[in-house]
């Protein structure tokens, strides 16, 4: 098999994964929120309502694509693509197993964060182009959030990188193999030094994803639907899909950085060789647990206010993250 063909097949696999994943996650969101809210979620279309979301995708595809007269046509058209394409690219470096990434980048972590940080630019474009005051406010909020939280998010992963000694996502997972004192798996989350780091990662990650309680850029009770107010049909569908896809990517990053990636605790390496689907299955299961927690938060928490959000980012998280990097450096290099 030629290398070009191999890459095309891998990228196709990612595309299919992203699309089916998005559909599954929307179904999951509806069911999880439904049961959190003492109702059932979708039940009528297909067994257990499973076909509800595919039907909704069909509906979005066949709906009229409305372009309001006053919009900036180019930006309005481009924005969904700028939102959706990077979130697709972010899958490229995720390690689904031992060496099982579409593109095994040495700087996978940096790459993933770099492409994910393009998404808010698309949101800002959408907000600006819509010629709607609510959209504009949503776009501006997205920009402010982005600037404030990109920094702590990146800083929060550095301690893990420092301990692993590599920026390759696969390498970071391998650095978490084995056990402490022959009992506790060597996942970074079991290292007390990385607990506050994980907290910062989780908060900043939720902000980056525009997830409750930080969903200010679309905060439906305040600014109607924010940047998405004027979008309809599949343009809206793409943004919606990208939101879920990013959720998956960020959860996957969390799993990779702190929860041992595709590894089961205490399982010897020979297992993964004997059962090739074990590693991806473990990885996706862990990722979905992370997604479930996000949905749980989404179903429960109120939204913070923009000034409180900025306060938290600039005054608390960034200094804390910087301090943690120094602390990790000192403890890891001097003591251990």
């Amino acid at each position: 098999m030629s290398p070009t063909l191999a890459i095309i097949i891998r990228l196709l696999a990612i595309l299919i994964l992203m699309l089916t994943n998005g559909v599954m996650m929307i179904y999951m969101l509806r069911k999880v929120l439904g049961h959190l809210h003492i109702r059932l979620g979708p039940v009528h279309v297909g067994p257990y309502g499973l076909l509800q979301t595919p039907m909704d995708v069909l509906k979005l595809l066949t709906k009229e694509d409305i372009t309001p007269r006053a919009v900036d046509k180019w930006l309005f058209f481009l924005a969904p693509a700028v939102v959706a394409v990077p979130s697709l690219m972010a899958y490229a470096a995720l390690p689904f197993g031992d060496g099982l990434a579409a593109v095994g980048l040495e700087t996978g972590l940096l790459f993933t964060f770099a492409v994910l940080s393009i998404v808010p630019i698309g949101i800002l474009m959408a907000g600006w182009a819509s010629a709607n005051k609510w959209s504009l406010l949503g776009g501006m909020r997205a920009a402010a959030q982005q600037i404030a939280y990109e920094v702590p998010l990146l800083l929060s992963v550095l301690p893990a990188v420092m301990i692993a000694g590599t920026m390759s996502l696969g390498g970071i997972v391998e650095a978490q193999s084995g056990t402490w004192l022959a009992v506790i798996p060597r996942w970074f989350i079991t290292n007390p030094l990385l607990w506050p780091t994980f907290l910062i990662f989780a908060i900043a990650g939720l902000v980056e994803l525009n997830q409750t309680p930080f969903d200010l850029s679309e905060g439906e009770s305040e600014i109607v639907a924010g940047f998405a107010s004027e979008y309809s049909a599949m343009k809206f569908g793409l943004m919606f899909l990208a939101e879920f896809s990013n959720q998956f990517v960020l959860s996957a990053l969390g799993v990779t950085l702190f929860f041992g990636g595709w590894m089961l605790p205490w399982a010897p390496m020979s297992w993964y060789e004997a059962v090739p689907v074990l590693a991806p299955a473990v990885f996706i299961t862990k990722t979905y647990i992370g997604i479930f927690v996000m949905m749980w938060i989404r179903g429960t928490f109120p939204r913070v206010r923009i000034d409180q959000l900025m306060d938290l980012g600039w005054k608390r998280l960034i200094p804390a993250a910087l301090f943690l990097i120094v602390l990790t450096g000192v403890i890891h290099k001097v003591v251990v």
């Binding site: 809210h37 109702r39 989404r298 429960t300």
Partner: peptide, 8 residues
């Protein structure tokens, strides 16, 4: 406030 659960 943006919370959904308590409404239901």
């Amino acid at each position: 406030t943006g919370a959904m659960g308590q409404f239901l």
